[in-house]
């Protein structure tokens, strides 16, 4: 054994000099580094390309209609000589904002509730299962939510909510129910679309909130419990203020998702381009309009108008998501 060791030691350094592999290893590493770098640049280029292609494709419509593209709610693809085609996107833009905001109204308190429950109150034995349920809810594809909304939620809503309200509204004209039912159409409307959106973004916001709550240092929590605070007081007075800034980011992350959600909304919002008259009116969002019309767009101007809508959506979501990421820092997803 000792002999072998000696022979190996003597063989050592010289063999290293002669190593044929060393320089080729260096070259391989350089190529590898280059490949990794290129992959990252492909990502950058994709986002840049996305922005440019939307801007270029949408420019004809925006330049043709000017400010009216954003302020008018007339959306008329079928032009006739005395009534030429016209595209005003106010309807879908407002529809996008309303559905997303109403959805957040439902989702935010629920998401905070779920996150707090999981972190503070959930019995250890079911915590795992609740967490899985939340993850599954996040995993269900948009189009499946759309199917459920279209075939289950909308009919139910029409039968059990809108029909009674309609009766009340008829008995009390000018009352609260009457206002609520202004412009009401079928169960496929802005409100039910918002509910679907709320269910969809709920798990995302809840997950981020949970991570944020878990990021509160243990000693801060323990110190407040040590003073005799109830769990509610610890959460409300210590933990939520502690994560305040990131919490706003988490909410905006959810908003960003809600703004751009496509298939589920397309299935259930009713797809009318008019300016919505009430929350139970049918409407449209930017994404649903594109999804519905792009494949059958009648002419260049129609196509361009739809891409211009896409550009507007990009600008809105990019700003919201960018703000969300900045508020969240780079740590949490």
């Amino acid at each position: 054994m000792a002999d072998a060791a000696v022979s190996l030691v003597q063989a050592g350094p010289q063999r290293i000099e002669d190593s044929p592999g060393a320089s080729s290893t260096g070259r391989k590493d350089a190529i590898f580094h280059g490949l990794c770098f290129s992959a990252a640049m492909v990502l950058m280029a994709t986002l840049a390309g996305l922005l440019i292609s939307l801007a270029v494709g949408g420019w004809p419509a925006i330049s043709h209609f000017g400010l009216q593209f954003f302020t008018s709610s007339e959306w008329n693809p079928s032009g006739t000589p005395d009534h030429p085609e016209f595209y005003g996107a106010a309807g879908p833009i407002v529809g996008t904002l309303i559905t997303a905001l109403v959805a957040m109204l439902f989702a935010l308190p629920l998401a905070i509730g779920i996150a707090v429950f999981l972190v503070e109150f959930c019995p250890k034995s079911i915590e795992h299962w609740v967490a899985i349920a939340v993850e599954l809810l996040a995993g269900i594809p948009s189009i499946v939510y759309g199917m459920w909304g279209l075939f289950v939620l909308a009919p139910w809503f029409e039968e059990h909510v809108m029909t009674p309200l309609r009766l009340v509204a008829m008995d009390h004209p000018g009352g609260f129910a009457d206002h609520l039912m202004t412009g009401a159409s079928s169960g496929s409307n802005i409100f039910t679309a918002s509910i679907i959106l709320a269910i969809m973004v709920l798990p995302f916001i809840a997950t981020v909130f949970r991570e944020l709550l878990l990021s509160v240092p243990t000693h801060v929590r323990e110190a407040s419990y040590g003073m005799g605070c109830t769990p509610f007081e610890v959460v409300a007075n210590i933990m939520l203020p502690y994560i305040r800034k990131s919490a706003v980011g988490a909410a905006m992350l959810g908003l960003g998702r809600a703004l751009g959600e496509t298939m589920a909304v397309t299935f259930i919002i009713g797809n009318s381009h008019a300016f919505p008259k009430g929350v139970f009116d049918s409407g449209s969002t930017i994404a649903s309009t594109i999804a519905n019309e792009f494949a059958e767009a009648t002419g260049d101007l129609h196509t361009s108008a739809l891409i211009a809508l896409g550009f507007v959506l990009f600008v809105i979501t990019f700003s919201v998501l960018a703000a969300a990421r900045l508020l969240l820092g780079q740590e949490t997803q």
């Binding site: 320089s23 590493d29 350089a30």
Partner: peptide
């Protein structure tokens, strides 16, 4: 530098990999 050629003498040169082998 990544990909730098290995010096032929027994000197380490700038090759950190060679240094770390020794």
């Amino acid at each position: 530098v990544d990909g730098a050629p290995v010096a032929t003498s027994s000197r380490i040169g700038g090759d950190a990999a060679k240094l770390r082998a020794r």
